[in-house]
Design a protein around this nucleic acid. Sequence first.
DNA 1: CGGCTGATGATCT
DNA 2: GATCATCAGCCGG
Length: 210
Amino acid sequence: MVEIDSKMPTRRLRPLRRRELPVSTVRLARYLIGKTLVRQLPEGTLAGRIVETEAYLTGDAAAHTFRGPTPRNRSLYLERGHAYVYFTYGNHFMLNVSGGHDGTGEGVLIRAVEPIEGIELMEHRRRTKSLKDLARGPGCLASALQVDRRLDGVDLTVRGPLWIGTALQRSSAIGTSVRIGITKEVHRLLRFYERGSAFVSGPRRLNLSA
DNA sequence: CGGCTGATGATCT
DNA sequence: GATCATCAGCCGG
């Protein structure tokens, strides 16, 4: 039993309840650091510890909702705790958690996780055995966890194909920086990461101070 | 490690 | 037609 448990750590988890999620999207982005992202597939369970997030807010020119609702971004307007998955650069899916109340177009981009469970499946999918590179960066993360548009709109607060569980281990200090890969609102400090984690993306200079 | 570049296609103007 | 919340590969230091 002990052995099975160590290979399936997500057995000990429960989904986060919606009322536990901060309504403030900035607070949600910080809150999600250290929590567990779980992907359940017929072949097994994949899971990782969230180590890097970014907030995208109302009135934020870098947010997909800046010009209002469109068919693509409608999931961002759902009550907090739903998935917004979109496709970009011709190759990659990105996973967000919707923030705020129903009708508020905010979200948290999940940029990196520390692999916890289903590592062999992730290695196969990503075609690398470098643990730290399996889910480092939002496109890599989506590929490793087999996240695609079919998961757009799913409720992340209930056990299902994709959900967010409680933390397995406490997070160390959270650092703050500018967001990565955007061309607007570049100065805003809306990226959050676990300090000292080897699984965080981005240039080293963004991963030092608080 | 940091910097640069091409790939690739959905989305919105 | 431009843009894009990226990545892998390649180069120089």
